[in-house]
């Protein structure tokens, strides 16, 4: 599978977008410009974009709390994502989701999830509708090594296997679930679990290499689209930052040596070197890309800054498609919605 010059440039652009967007988001959390916290994908960009770049328009995906990379990797515009992180009206979810619950249906992102493992069957359902309706689309579920120990994953793998659904289970094995090393809570190898369901299981040892991830996911996507069923892919990778921004743990559960080793194999640096060495790119053109992405992130922040906070009444929109529901709320609840003084008792 060879990618064109433009496609390779786009891969680097998306990896850089994730890196720069998350670096900015991290700062904004620490300065109080983003309420709550965020989980960054810094260090995991090749794993994310290797997967999303293997999907097509119309394909679906679901994700988790480490959430910004997935929609960015699938091509979502940065402004509405940033405005969502800041809780603004122009946020992609109108300020109702926040970092943990991003979704951008326009690029097939059916939702990130604050509940570990919970969004996996959502992608299974998207694969089911593709199959029942005879559509050529596939669905991919992103989940961590921690989520790999949730039972619903295996219910989903079993259903996807027995129904031969067009689906990819993509385990982002960054080797830790919060502070817990995967090997201390995980029996056997995650990818090997696929065998129990009679579906292919693939482990990518070097998840910092875009090409390795992309090749594996691309063949799984091709299989799925050809009606040959689901694949489990485990990508070994590493997150550079703390589990979430602002979190400070007194126990150093990852040692400095380990971190230095992974930093020396940075996915974006490696990819840049490969583009220059093997694909005819110049350093100037890639420097220009860096600058361009920084500008995009600045623009995203400006987009967020320019957006007002949502009207209070928005809290009462979009629970149901049926808008008459709000009328059935009690007088007290409605008073809040109408921003009037509560009816005196």
């Amino acid at each position: 599978m060879t990618l064109s010059h433009d496609e390779l440039l786009e891969v680097q652009r998306r990896m850089l977008r994730i890196r720069k967007f998350d670096e900015r988001a991290s700062k904004m959390v620490k300065r109080g410009h983003i309420p709550g916290t965020v989980h960054t994908s810094i260090g995991q960009e090749a794993q994310v974009v290797g997967a999303t770049f293997a999907l097509q328009d119309g394909d679906y995906m679901s994700g988790n709390h480490r959430s910004h990379g997935h929609p960015i990797g699938k091509g979502a515009p940065l402004g509405p994502l940033m405005a969502e992180l800041t809780g603004k009206a122009a946020g992609v979810c109108k300020g109702k989701g926040g970092s943990l619950h991003l979704a951008d249906f326009a690029v097939g992102s059916l939702g990130e999830s604050g509940i570990v493992g919970s969004s996996i069957p959502i992608a299974t359902g998207a694969a089911l509708s593709s199959k029942v309706l005879g559509r050529p689309t596939v669905a991919l579920a992103f989940f961590g090594d921690g989520a790999a120990n949730q039972g619903v994953l295996y219910e989903s793998m079993n259903m996807a296997g027995v129904w031969n659904l067009p689906m990819i289970f993509l385990c982002e094995n960054n080797q830790y679930a919060l502070s817990t090393p995967a090997h201390t809570v995980t029996s056997g190898v995650i990818a090997d679990r696929a065998a129990g369901f009679g579906i292919p299981g693939v482990r990518i040892e070097n998840g910092q290499d875009f090409f390795a991830v992309h090749d594996a996911v691309k063949s799984a996507v091709d299989r799925a689209r050809a009606g040959e069923g689901p694949t489990l892919i485990e990508v070994v990778t590493y997150r550079y930052n703390e589990h979430s921004e602002g979190l400070r743990l007194s126990v150093d559960y990852r040692n400095a040596e380990e971190k230095a080793e992974w930093l020396s194999r940075d996915p974006i640096v490696q990819f840049r070197e490969a583009l220059i060495a093997d694909h005819g790119f110049t350093a100037e053109e890639l420097d220009a890309l860096d600058a361009d992405v920084l500008r995009e992130v600045d623009e995203a922040v400006a987009f967020s800054d320019a957006s007002p906070f949502p009207e209070k009444s928005v809290a009462f929109d979009d629970l149901f498609t049926d808008t008459t529901y709000v009328e059935t709320l009690s007088r007290q609840e409605r008073a809040a919605f109408e921003q009037k003084e509560e009816v005196p008792a």
Partner: peptide
Amino acid sequence: RNRIRNTPISEEGIVGAAAGAAMTGL
């Protein structure tokens, strides 16, 4: 059998898959 889907005993998976299917056209 495409539209009458006999399932394994996996309530969590069934409900989640039905939700995902409902979000994407079924």
